[in-house]
Design a protein around this nucleic acid. Structure first.
Length: 312
DNA sequence: TCATCATGCCGAT
DNA sequence: TCGGCCTGATGAT
């Protein structure tokens, strides 16, 4: 789903199957017609993610910036490489959607072709389903973009400015130590609740509502604590934890934050949503540590889950 | 068939 | 702080 780990996986997928090739770019829905015309026929030269945003680099320096928002997703067809060892290639990445694939627990969908069949009944390229915003295609692979919050073509300077507006992302920073120190500064100089600062994409980029709730539980930190009251070393610990969780999420495609599980428990949880989180989505259920019912509150218009006993 | 919900973000007030 | 916007799945009616 579209927190940072998903977007990094999308970037990786484009590197595997699209970078280095000329792309046919179109706008089935029409809303991306101008941008598509600028990119159509150009070779894709790079694919990178920063936070929740995807940047696709094209010959001539043009950059396609995509933000999936809450509802966006990529549908993938044709020749698509598996991203996760031992798992089938994916047919959809982003917001949870189910179109032609079987049941899966996450925002990623295995492809119909993956469940034993050859997938030969799928025409290629497939007709765009619904009103796709954009289609990027090589002669072998197709990526359809649906429902994004942002999809725009930028010149190199504007793309750099968009990246500069984002906070630090442990998956792209060269110097994790220096980045951690900077993040700790940004987290501890404002009176805004730490729970809101974690969602602020200009501080640490890529954290969404699930990772926010889970990271604060892992730190046993009350989300309502003003940032400036959080000890610097605790703030620094949040960065270090984000680095660990993000790397794990990129590897598995799943937001699994339970560090208490053994290998078998972890393997089970990867396929069972109800076992993946400490507090997210568990309102009213007993805290996994102390048994106190998990509460859900509104913080700046988003749902915030926490254990009122463990996090203080 | 309808209302509600969702892992996000922006701009007006 | 609020409403709006992107889209589709789900459960109630």
């Amino acid at each position: 789903m579209p927190e940072g780990h998903t977007v990094h996986r999308v970037a990786r997928q484009f590197r595997r199957d699209f970078v280095g090739r000329p792309l046919a770019v179109s706008s089935p829905q029409g809303r991306f017609a101008q941008g598509a015309a600028l990119l159509d026929g150009r070779r894709l030269t790079g694919s990178r993610a920063v936070g929740k945003q995807l940047f696709l680099d094209f010959d001539g320096g043009l950059v396609l910036r995509v933000h999936l928002g809450l509802y966006g997703a990529w549908d993938l067809f044709g020749q698509i490489s598996p991203l996760t060892e031992g798992m089938a290639a994916l047919g959809s990445m982003g917001a949870p959607r189910l179109r032609r694939a079987g049941r899966m627990g996450g925002g990623e969908r295995e492809r119909a072709a993956a469940d034993g069949g050859s997938g030969a009944d799928e025409p290629f390229p497939p007709p765009p389903v619904g009103q796709g915003r954009g289609r990027l295609a090589t002669d072998a692979s197709v990526a359809d973009l649906r429902g994004p919050t942002a999809c725009e073509v930028l010149d190199p300077e504007s793309a750099a400015a968009a990246v500069a507006r984002l906070g630090l992302d442990p998956a792209t920073e060269e110097d994790l130590d220096a980045a951690g120190a900077e993040v700790a500064r940004r987290l501890t100089r404002r009176a805004v609740p730490i729970g809101q600062l974690l969602m602020d994409q200009s501080v640490m980029a890529g954290i969404g509502n699930i990772y926010r709730a889970e990271m604060l539980f892992r730190a046993r930190l009350d989300p309502w604590t003003p940032g400036r009251q959080v000890p610097v070393e605790v703030a620094r610990g949040l960065w270090d934890d984000w680095a660990v969780l993000l790397a794990d999420g990129i590897r598995t495609g799943v937001i699994l934050t339970r560090e208490d599980l053994d290998e078998a428990g972890r393997a089970r949880a990867l396929g069972d949503r109800s076992e993946q989180h400490w507090v997210y989505g568990r309102a009213g259920l007993p805290c996994r540590v102390c048994g106190t019912p998990v509460v859900v509150e509104d913080m700046a218009g988003r749902k915030l889950y926490r254990c009122p006993a463990c996090q203080r």
